[in-house]
Design a protein around this nucleic acid. Sequence first.
DNA 1: CTGTTAACGTTATAATATAACACTATGTCG
DNA 2: CGACATAGTGTTATATTATAACGTTAACAG
Lengths: 165, 165
Amino acid sequence: MSPKTQSPGIAFRKHDHRRCQRQLLSEATQLCAERNLRLTSRRRQVLEILLASHQPMGAYDILAELNRSSRNEQIAPPIVYRALEFLLGEGLIHRIESLNAFISCAHPGHRCGAQFLICRDCDQVAELEVSDNDLLAEAGDLGFAVDHSVVEITGVCAECQKHVG
Amino acid sequence: MSPKTQSPGIAFRKHDHRRCQRQLLSEATQLCAERNLRLTSRRRQVLEILLASHQPMGAYDILAELNRSSRNEQIAPPIVYRALEFLLGEGLIHRIESLNAFISCAHPGHRCGAQFLICRDCDQVAELEVSDNDLLAEAGDLGFAVDHSVVEITGVCAECQKHVG
DNA sequence: CTGTTAACGTTATAATATAACACTATGTCG
DNA sequence: CGACATAGTGTTATATTATAACGTTAACAG
Ligand SMILES: [Zn+2]
Ligand SMILES: [Zn+2]
Ligand SMILES: [Zn+2]
Ligand SMILES: [Zn+2]
């Protein structure tokens, strides 16, 4: 049996992230093996950068991180974007459209889109996994065949609401 | 009594768009009057460009359109972005994050975010107005104070599904 | 008018993303 | 093994989207 995925909203709760990180990387490795795909070192490198936190990162932040760790090579944007493209395609990461940023997936494997809560105070982002019935029903009524959905809710997280008062 | 707004999914149905356009522009004018805001000629110009269709347009497409219509001035990006910012703020248009594009709002006034169906075949975009209970419930459970929500569903519209088979 | 502010115009530049093409690693088959 | 096909990588240049900064003009209140 494969390891358990993270519960919704993990980023907003204290947890043993070291463990979380290891688990997600191992799930990714396994998933690529099952699908007969190559999680090359570049791809893993980019995934690991994103797995280091539950924060979203811009492509150029990732690029900078790559260039920091790997001395004496100068890595260029296409390398990052290609790795991101692969990881997106396999549902190992997500793109946050409203931030032009990328974030590691909290429960890899689902390719159909996720939902995010984005705190505009602390910039933390939590991935949910809600079945989005109301919307899908409406789409269905109009005969629309859903492919991918982007749901990004901006606001203030519980923690930050306390600190404002 | 103010004029009726468009029903959900208007862009996917045949309708008298000339009328639709006039109505939305008049609603916008009225709404700005009520709010004591200036719908200046630049702002109206940009709104009219977006009202010309129910299609999303990139900022630079709008810019090109401005430069086409107004001979002998060369308009620059900030002008467009500022008009867009105003229109967004008043809920007269929306930003489609996953397309980096802007679209006229089908029922102006609601500032809290909308839902879109985006056909990847014909590029048409329909605005819905669904109360998004499942998501808001989950956000509520986590104590998250919602501010703005982005919902963009990509797929194939009913019409395009026919033409594929 | 005259001071105050909002909107506009202009220039330059930042931030994000991709096209195009050459090179290298990986695996297949004779 | 060695030739081939293909997927992945590296490199350069450039496209696309968006904003900073600052001066000018228009609108409006006193
Ligand atoms: Zn974690
Ligand atoms: Zn927060
Ligand atoms: Zn219409
Ligand atoms: Zn369509």
